[in-house]
Design a protein around this nucleic acid. Sequence first.
DNA 1: GTCTATACAAAGATAGAC
DNA 2: GTCTATCTTTGTATAGAC
Lengths: 189, 189
Amino acid sequence: MTDTATQILDTAQELIQSRGYSAISFQDIAERVGIKKPSIIHHFPSKAALGEAVIKRYRLGFADQIEAIKADPGKTVWEALAFYFSPYLDYAQTPDKVCLCGALAGEIMALPEEMHEEVKRFMESHQRWLEDILREGKENGEFQFDETPPHMARVFFSALQGALLVKRATGDVSQVRDVTDTISKFIGT
Amino acid sequence: MTDTATQILDTAQELIQSRGYSAISFQDIAERVGIKKPSIIHHFPSKAALGEAVIKRYRLGFADQIEAIKADPGKTVWEALAFYFSPYLDYAQTPDKVCLCGALAGEIMALPEEMHEEVKRFMESHQRWLEDILREGKENGEFQFDETPPHMARVFFSALQGALLVKRATGDVSQVRDVTDTISKFIGT
DNA sequence: GTCTATACAAAGATAGAC
DNA sequence: GTCTATCTTTGTATAGAC
């Protein structure tokens, strides 16, 4: 991966997280990277391919981190959960960013098929990860809740994604923190 | 409101709910309504004005319904909540629709200011309504929960919006029902 | 109220020089 | 690997006839 390709991916990701995919163009990206439109094509053959590459990198970057936390015997389930919450809380501090896949979810029917598939993988893997952590915590007694881990995982993931979107739309920065605090209380004191 | 204007609003709403705002055009709408592009301008002076009109109608239609439910002494808070859940569950049964404002939340920074403002009003009013219902239920003993009504309202609204978006992206229709069932259990048996 | 015709800008993408 | 130049399509919007 050349330096320019990385800059293109970084810029595209940033722009998609703030404006979505349909609203951005090669022109927007080229201006910020400091190159001309056709130079992007040299690195990514189409807008769809660039979009797919952005999500894939995002998804795999998360996957590495959250799998490492889950496998680390030195981390409690509470620490794993706090780690999972942290990017949501970080994005909530920015004026205009949400989760990349949360941003794309609203326009999913307008996305090329490869991008839709990547978003789907992202969401399924995150809900599975949350399910695993919740199950582990329930089994070892660190978490206390009555519902099943898959159901709780769906509520947690939906609430986190939704909270970021609501926060950005309303401008109320406490939305995400309120949600993480409240769902944490659903599983323990 | 002429019949054509209503058809334009209906079609625009449908398209935005499935694809988002940035990805749709006058051409898409005109084709479905059976008119030509410039005829839309006669009813709505710009795409931004049309977008604003779509959200405003959507927001006010909801406002009438949910305020009526809240004011109805014949309805319990559980019935009011079930009523509030119903459009989310209905949209979950469609292959490609989410809440209009959930769809727009991902591309909020690409929207004209008037549309952003309307989305904000929609979300704030829905969270306030949920807060009122949750408070009333907690005070009269029909709901049991430890957290504050504003915090619970934020979790509920975020989770509902998020669940619809996740459902559409993953194609798993049980997402929304699982979330409504689970959050219902957070406030009672 | 709807149309045709058109203006004008911007989009994604290609060809080929350097 | 990046550029200029260009193609083709599509976007929002306007003017003016009917």
